[in-house]
Amino acid sequence: MDEQVAHIVGFDVHHPGATDDPCPRLFGRLWHQEAKMTVPTSREVLEGFLSTLQAHGARRAFEQYAVEDYVQHNPKAGRGREGAIAYLEEEAAKGGRATVKRIISDGAMVALHLHMEFTDGSPDLAIVDIWRVEEGKLAEHWDVAQEITKTSISEAF
């Protein structure tokens, strides 16, 4: 968790007794307070999102971990949170398993590298998802996917 400081300003009002005066005088004091808040790191946000996605599905994960004006750059998914939810629900219907290979974070950016295996006969995919995190929520997403072939001149995935 990252620590941030919030500045809170208030005014305490005191009205000394009831009166028929239409413009009674108000007394009070202005105050200022600093409060330390913990904000999850981009990695912690992504890990929470993935955990909720696995346990409760795309809709709950996006409602809990993504901003309302979420930006989706995947050309196969529709716009915003609703487009991402529909796309992930469609992909989940194919059946399969995602294995996280690594998570890399740098400030507000976090990347996920995973191996996706489908049970419907679709080819396995190596996927890299990249998110921008804003105030503890997923705000923007990009991804690339590569088919994992059965034969390769490089080492196996």
Rank of each mutant, 00 (worst) to 15 (best):
V67R: 14
G83T: 07
E68Q: 06
Y87M: 13
A84N: 06
R79Y: 12
G78P: 06
V71F: 05
Q72P: 00
A92L: 09
L88Q: 13
H73I: 10
Y70R: 02
E91L: 11
A61T: 00
D69S: 08
E63I: 00
V71I: 12
R60K: 12
I85E: 08
I85K: 06
H73P: 03
E63D: 15
Y70W: 04
Q64G: 02
I85R: 09
P75T: 09
V67L: 10
K94P: 11
E82C: 09
V71E: 13
H73D: 13
K94H: 13
A86C: 04
E89V: 12
A86H: 05
V71R: 14
H73L: 09
L88S: 08
K94M: 14
A77L: 14
H73N: 09
E90K: 11
Q64E: 10
Y87L: 13
Y87K: 02
R81P: 03
G80M: 12
A77H: 06
A93I: 00
R60T: 03
R60M: 02
R79A: 15
R60L: 03
R81F: 07
D69K: 06
R81K: 15
I85Q: 10
R81A: 08
A77P: 02
A77M: 07
I85P: 02
H73Q: 12
K94Y: 13
R60E: 10
A84T: 09
Y70H: 01
K94S: 12
A92R: 11
A66N: 02
N74K: 00
E82D: 15
A93W: 07
Y70M: 08
D69M: 04
Y65N: 03
Y70E: 05
R79H: 11
R60D: 00
A92C: 04
R59D: 08
A86W: 01
F62T: 01
A77I: 01
K94D: 15
H73C: 08
R81S: 05
A93N: 05
G83L: 12
G80V: 12
Y87H: 14
F62S: 00
A93S: 15
E63C: 02
I85T: 06
Q72R: 06
P75H: 14
A84K: 00
N74F: 09
K94A: 14
E68S: 08
A93P: 02
H73T: 09
N74Y: 06
Y87E: 08
V67C: 05
E63Y: 04
K76H: 10
E89M: 03
V71G: 04
E90C: 04
E63K: 04
L88F: 10
G78I: 04
D69L: 07
E90F: 10
A84Q: 11
Y87N: 07
A77V: 01
A77R: 01
F62V: 01
R81L: 09
E90S: 11
Y65F: 15
E68D: 13
Q64S: 05
E91I: 13
E68Y: 05
E68G: 13
E63W: 00
H73R: 12
P75R: 07
R79F: 15
A93Q: 04
Q72Y: 03
G83C: 06
V67H: 05
G83E: 14
H73W: 08
E68V: 10
Y70V: 01
R79K: 14
P75I: 12
A93R: 08
